[in-house]
C-alpha cells in the first residue's frame, strides 16, 4: 500500500441528540477508490461532509496530508471562530466534491461555474482560468456547451459541469455523494464511465453509491455502514464473501 493521504480518527457527528456518525476510523491511501455502501440514513453522506468539513464532525479528527483538522466552535469568541473558519478553505480547495443534486450555480454559464473556483480560490487570471476551465469541460464531453446556462442542460450534463468544476481545481481526492441517484437511468452509465476514467487515471476517490456493480468493479476497498458506524471494511472480494450478518442481509436484499 502506498502512502496514506487521508485518515479519519474516531470521527463522530450528531445533530442535537441524534447521533449520525460514531467512531469512524478510516485510512485512505493515495490512488485508492473507496466505495461507501449501506442502507439510507446510515450516515454515508454525512461521512463525506465530515471529510471536507462542510458538516464539521463534533468528535475526532481528520488528518489530510499529515495535517490534523478538528472542529472548533466557541459560543462567544467570534474572533477565534473566524480564525478557524478562515483556515477551512485551504482544506476544501484540495478536496473535490460532487453532489447528488449537482448543485451547479444556475446564475452562471457552464464555463463560469468552473472559472469561479479557478479565479477566486486558486487566484488565476481570468484568461488562464478560462483556458483551464475549457480544457476541463472538454474532458467531460461538454466542449460545445461552454456558454450554456445550466437550465438548458440535461441532468447528466449538469453533473458533468459539477465534475469539471471540481476537477479543474486539481484536487488530491474526490468525494462523490450518490452522484447518479438523481439521474435518468439512461444517463447513469455516462457518469459512471467518467468516474471509471478518473479512477484509472489514479485519482483518489471516496464514493458513496447505490451502484453495486460499479462499487464491486472499481473499488479497491468497500466500506459497509449501518446506523452511523462502519460495520465492515474490505476488498470487493472480502465484502462479497463477508459473514457479517447486517452486511450479508443488505447485499442479498440488493443483489438478490
Amino acid at each position: 500500500m502506498s502512502e496514506t493521504l487521508l485518515q479519519l480518527r474516531n470521527v463522530g457527528k450528531r445533530f442535537g441528540d441524534h447521533v449520525v456518525l460514531k467512531d469512524i476510523n478510516l485510512d485512505i491511501a493515495k490512488g485508492e477508490v473507496v466505495c461507501v455502501i449501506g442502507p439510507s440514513g446510515s450516515g454515508k453522506s454525512t461521512l463525506l461532509r465530515c471529510i471536507n468539513f462542510i458538516a464539521p464532525p463534533e468528535e475526532g479528527e481528520v488528518i489530510f496530508e499529515g495535517r490534523t483538522w478538528k472542529r472548533f466552535h466557541s459560543a462567544f469568541n467570534f474572533i477565534a471562530n473566524r480564525k478557524y473558519e478562515a483556515k477551512l478553505p485551504t482544506l476544501r480547495a484540495e478536496i473535490g466534491m460532487v453532489f447528488q443534486h449537482f448543485n451547479v450555480f444556475p446564475h452562471m454559464t457552464a464555463i463560469e461555474n468552473v472559472v469561479l473556483g479557478l479565479t477566486k480560490v486558486r487566484g488565476n487570471t481570468r484568461n488562464v482560468a478560462r483556458e483551464i476551465a475549457e480544457r476541463s469541460l472538454r474532458q467531460v464531453g461538454l466542449g460545445d456547451k461552454l456558454d450554456q446556462y445550466p437550465e438548458k442542460l440535461s441532468g447528466g450534463q449538469k453533473q458533468r459541469v459539477a465534475i469539471a468544476r471540481a476537477l479543474a481545481l486539481n484536487p488530491k481526492v474526490m468525494l462523490f455523494d450518490e452522484v447518479t441517484s438523481a439521474l435518468d437511468p439512461e444517463l447513469v452509465t455516462g457518469i459512471l464511465d467518467e468516474m471509471r476514467r478518473l479512477a484509472s487515471d489514479g485519482m483518489t476517490m471516496v464514493v458513496v453509491t447505490h451502484e453495486m456493480n460499479f462499487a464491486f468493479q472499481v473499488a479497491t476497498r468497500i466500506v459497509f455502514m449501518d446506523a452511523g458506524r462502519i460495520v465492515t471494511i474490505g476488498t470487493p472480494e472480502e465484502i462479497r464473501n463477508t459473514t457479517e450478518p447486517r452486511a450479508r442481509a443488505f447485499l442479498s436484499s440488493i443483489l438478490g
Binding site: 461532509r49 471536507n52 462542510i54 473558519e85 478562515a86 477551512l88 478553505p89 485551504t90 476544501r92 480547495a93 484540495e94 478536496i95 473535490g96 466534491m97 453532489f99 443534486h101 448543485n103 451547479v104 450555480f105 469561479l116 473556483g117 477566486k120 480560490v121 459539477a162 468544476r165 471540481a166 481545481l169
Partner: peptide, 23 residues
C-alpha cells in the same frame, strides 16, 4: 436559495463571505 448551493460553493474552497456574495 437551495442549501446545496452554499455547500457546493464552500466545497470548491470559497470562504464563507465569498460563498455568500458570489453564489
Amino acid at each position: 436559495v437551495d442549501f446545496g448551493q452554499r455547500e457546493a460553493a464552500l466545497a470548491i474552497g470559497l470562504t464563507q463571505s465569498k460563498a455568500f456574495n458570489l453564489v
